[in-house]
Write a protein that binds this DNA or RNA. Structure first.
Lengths: 227, 227
DNA sequence: GATTTGATGTGAAACAATTCACAAAACAAG
DNA sequence: CTTGTTTTGTGAATTGTTTCACATCAAATC
C-alpha cells in the first residue's frame, strides 16, 4: 500500500464519506452490487477517481464483478471505526447547541452525545433527554465516559477558553462551530464548521454565475463545491 | 490577471474567508496594518500562500508597507458582494432550521432570512420573529424579495423534492443540511453541510493519531482540516 | 476449456496547487 | 540623492491530485 500523504488522505477520505452515503441510498433501493462507474455517477465524480480512492484505502472489488455493497459498507465502517461507539460532549447549549443535541443522525451512526455543558446556571435546571452540566463537571464526565471528541457551540468570545479546558481534560478532537481559529497544541484535531462562510460562498458563486462575466472558467462545475 | 481554474478559486476563496476572520480579529485588537507573514501566522498558512491568494483576487498591498487592514477588509467586502443585502429563504423548521433561523451572525453579515417554510400546518401558527409559511407561498415570497439563495434543512427524504421546487422558482444557490447529494441542473450551486461527516472525520483522525501506527505522515498537521 | 468480454487496479502522464526564489518597489537613513 | 533594508508580487520549481491507459483478472459464451 502506498504511503499516504497528508493532503491525499484528506480529499479521498471526504469522498469516501460521500461514497458511503450513495451506497446506503443505493442499498435501500435494493441494489446489491455496484461498478466503479455506477457509484461514480451517483457521487458525481469519475470512475477512475472511485477506483483510485478505493485503492488508497486498500478496498478491493472483484474484477469484472464490481463491488458488493454490503462488503463495501462493512469495510468503510472499519475505516471510520464505526464498529465502536463514540462518546461525545457538547459545550454550549444556545440555539445551535440545542439543535445539535437533538440531532438524531449522530446516534444512528454510533456517535453519542453523553452530556452537554453550559455556563448559564439557569440551563442546568432544564429537564431534557440529555443532562446540561456546569463546566466544573467536565473532567468527571470526560473521564467517566472516556470522551475524546467534543463539539464546541459556544459564542466566539469564549470558544478559545473552552477549547483550552477541553484539551487540558484529554479531548483530542473538536468540531468547532464558533467562527474563530482555535489555537491548540500539536496532535489535536480541529474541524471548523462556519455557517456564515458556507452561505457566503454560495452567494459568491451565485453572483459569479449570474453576472456572467469572466465566467467561462466557472461554468457548471459547482454542483457540489465540497467534493 | 491570471485565468481562474475551477479548483483554484475554491481553495483560495475559502482561505480568503479565513483571512477576513483573522483581519477582523486583528482589527479589534487595534492592529491597523499587516504583512503577509503576520496574517499568515494568524491564519496558520504560509506567507507565500497569502500573497498568492491575494494576487489571484487582484488584491494589492504596498511594497515594504504591507497591507492596510481597513483597505483589505473593504476589498474583501467587494469580492463577497457584501455591500448589498442578500435575502435568503429557509426550508424546514425542525431543530436545525429553528436554530438557523435564530442564528444572528447571518444578519451581521447582511444575509437576511426573510421567511421560513415548513409543510407541517401546526408550525404555521407559531408566532416568532420570522414567519413560517406553507410551501404553497414559496413562489410569492421568492419573487417579492428577489431571493436567489436558500437553506435546506428538511429531512433527507424530502430534500430532493424541495430542491426541485426551489430551482423551479428561481433559486440559484443552496446550502443543504440534508445528507443527500442533490441533483440539480447545470448552473445551480449546491453547498452541502453534513454534520455527521464533520464529526466522523474528527473521530477518524483522532483514532489515527492515538493508535499511532502508520502515522509519521499524519503528524501534527490536522490543526485545521479545512484550510 | 478456449475465447471473448467487461471490469478492476495501478503505474505513468497530465494537470493543479503550493512553495521557492528573486526582481521590483518603497521607505529609511546617511 | 544614493545605499541599504524590507516587503510585495509573481514566474519557476516542486509537490500533490486527477485522469489516462492498459495489463490483469474473472466471468460468460461458445
Amino acid at each position: 500500500m502506498k504511503q499516504f500523504t497528508k493532503q491525499a488522505i484528506k480529499k479521498s477520505l471526504k469522498r469516501i464519506f460521500l461514497y458511503r452515503a450513495c451506497l446506503v441510498r443505493l442499498k435501500t433501493m435494493g441494489v446489491e452490487k455496484v461498478f466503479s462507474y455506477t457509484l461514480a455517477n451517483e457521487a458525481g465524480v469519475t470512475a477512475d477517481q472511485v477506483r483510485k480512492d478505493f485503492s488508497e484505502f486498500n478496498i478491493k472489488g472483484n474484477k469484472r464483478g464490481g463491488y458488493d455493497i454490503n462488503d463495501l459498507l462493512e469495510r468503510m465502517e472499519k475505516i471510520f471505526h464505526r464498529n465502536k461507539d463514540h462518546n461525545i460532549v457538547l459545550i454550549g447549549m444556545g440555539n445551535m447547541g440545542m439543535a445539535l443535541s437533538k440531532y438524531n443522525k449522530f446516534v444512528q451512526r454510533n456517535m453519542n452525545i453523553v452530556a452537554t455543558f453550559d455556563i448559564d446556571p439557569f440551563k442546568h435546571k432544564i429537564r431534557s433527554d440529555l443532562p446540561i452540566y456546569p463546566m466544573s463537571r467536565l473532567k468527571e464526565i470526560i473521564d467517566r465516559f472516556r470522551v475524546r471528541v467534543a463539539i464546541i457551540a459556544v459564542p466566539e468570545i469564549s470558544a478559545q477558553e473552552v477549547c483550552d479546558e477541553l484539551v487540558r481534560n484529554g479531548i483530542k478532537g473538536v468540531v468547532n462551530f464558533a467562527p474563530v481559529l482555535l489555537k491548540v497544541p500539536p496532535g489535536i484535531v480541529i474541524n471548523n464548521v462556519n455557517l456564515c462562510d458556507e452561505l457566503e460562498s454560495v452567494i459568491y458563486y451565485v453572483h459569479q454565475l449570474m453576472s456572467g462575466d469572466g465566467l467561462k472558467n466557472i461554468e457548471l462545475l459547482y454542483r457540489d463545491m465540497k467534493y
